[in-house]
Computed example of a mutant assay.
Amino acid sequence: MAVVEAVKFPKAVLFDLDGTLLDSAPDMVAAIDAMRARRNQPPMALTELRPHVSKGGRAMVAAAFPEVPEDERQHWLPEFLDSYEQALGRHSVLFDGVDAMLAALEQSGCIWGIVTNKPEYLARQVIPVLGWETRCAVLIGGDTLSERKPHPLPLLVAAERIGVAPEDCVYVGDDERDIVAARAAGMPSVVALWGYRLDGDDPSAWQGDVMIETPSELLRPDAWPVTR
């Protein structure tokens, strides 16, 4: 009689940070509101900014100040990053189910790390706030390397640093560029549907390997895409 091999968690999992592991939108809107206050403008509604968070700082500044010409707004990014650094970790929380999911991965022997487009110096300040100093095996920021997502280089370097082949890793992200980067790296992917998306985004068109509604679903090994 044939022996059926038990379904296992992946050997390694790499995650996007904002919108995938961390609901950082409240910190982001605090940073934007500080900028708006300096310009005598009222606070911005969290619901208005939330869909833009995974698109990066430039997109958030554009959403907050649509009346300002783009060539002027681009000079405001350092101010946004400084404001965000002041708010970092004060209001953000893990998405429901993330802590249990990471614990299940660790219990299975799975290695996990983070590949984000957030500047590395900011991402590294988040890690101790979450108590992940000894848990997160690798951290690649948007300025760590010469390329950032959707280029596959950050994912490939992260896999190399943890000593796992890309095809044995899974990448989890809530934005199209996450899935594009994973596909280019030869890495199976999970579309995190609980993250931040604009109304016009169509995750089914991103061609991820699986789409998952909540982190809690990833407590089941069979919910993950098949690796090598």
Rank of each mutant, 00 (worst) to 15 (best):
Y196T: 01
P128R: 11
P150F: 09
S216T: 07
D23P: 08
Q125P: 04
V29N: 13
V115R: 08
V138T: 01
R39C: 00
D96M: 11
H91G: 05
A184T: 05
A223M: 07
P215A: 04
G200M: 13
L139C: 10
A59N: 11
F9A: 02
G109I: 09
L145T: 10
L22S: 01
E120Q: 15
V53M: 09
M187Q: 10
L88C: 01
V93G: 02
V129S: 07
G200V: 12
W194E: 00
L105R: 11
E167T: 06
I140S: 12
K149W: 02
E120P: 10
R73I: 05
Q125K: 15
E160A: 14
V226H: 08
E70S: 13
M28C: 11
E120G: 12
L122V: 04
L105V: 09
A159W: 02
P78C: 13
H151P: 09
E48D: 14
R161Y: 08
P150S: 05
L193Q: 13
V129I: 15
G173C: 04
K55A: 12
P128K: 07
E176L: 10
V129R: 15
L14H: 03
V68H: 07
P150D: 06
H75L: 15
K55V: 04
I127L: 14
A63N: 12
I179F: 04
R161N: 12
F15W: 05
A34H: 13
G208H: 08
A123T: 15
K118F: 03
L198V: 03
A223R: 12
E79Q: 14
A205T: 14
V115L: 04
R148D: 08
F9T: 02
E133M: 13
R183M: 10
A64H: 05
G195R: 03
P42I: 00
G195S: 04
G142Y: 07
D23H: 11
A181E: 05
E217T: 00
V7K: 07
G141L: 08
V172D: 01
A159L: 03
L102Q: 02
P26I: 00
W206S: 02
I162Y: 10
A181K: 03
F65P: 10
S146G: 07
K11E: 12
A87N: 10
M44D: 02
D71V: 15
P51C: 06
I212M: 00
I111M: 13
P215C: 06
M1S: 14
S83V: 04
L81F: 08
P150T: 05
P225R: 12
V13S: 02
Q107I: 01
H75C: 08
S189I: 06
L77P: 12
